[in-house]
Amino acid sequence: MKLDSLLQLGLDERDVTVYRALLKLGPASIREVAAESGVNRGTTYETLKQLASRGVVSYFPRGKRRVFQAEEPERLLQLGERRQQALSQAMEQLRSEVIPELKQSQARFNPGNVRFYEGDDGVELVLRDILDSAGKDPERGYAVISTKTLRQHLYRPFPNFTKQREARGIRVRVIAVGEGGDEAEYAERKWLPSEADADASYIAIYPPKVAMITLAARDYPVVVIIDSAAIASTQQLMFDTLWRLL
Rank of each mutant, 00 (worst) to 15 (best):
P61S: 04
E72V: 04
R66V: 15
L94N: 05
E74W: 07
Q89V: 12
Q85F: 12
P100N: 03
P73Q: 03
S96W: 13
K103D: 08
Q104I: 13
M91S: 14
Q104D: 11
V67Y: 05
R62Y: 07
L94T: 08
G80N: 04
Q84T: 15
A90W: 04
E81K: 11
R83G: 04
R65Q: 12
Y59D: 11
A90C: 07
S88W: 14
Q93V: 00
A70L: 00
L79T: 02
S96A: 13
L87Q: 10
Q104L: 11
S88N: 15
L76E: 00
Q78D: 14
A90T: 05
M91E: 15
R66D: 14
E97Y: 07
F60L: 10
Q89R: 15
M91G: 12
F60D: 08
A70N: 01
R65V: 07
L77F: 09
E81S: 10
Q93P: 09
G63M: 04
P100H: 09
Q104G: 02
V67N: 03
V67A: 07
Q89Y: 14
R95P: 10
L87G: 05
Q93R: 07
R95G: 05
R82W: 10
V67C: 02
R65N: 01
L77M: 13
R66Q: 15
A86C: 11
Q85M: 12
S96I: 13
Q69W: 02
Q93H: 11
E72S: 12
F68M: 02
R65W: 09
A90K: 12
K64P: 02
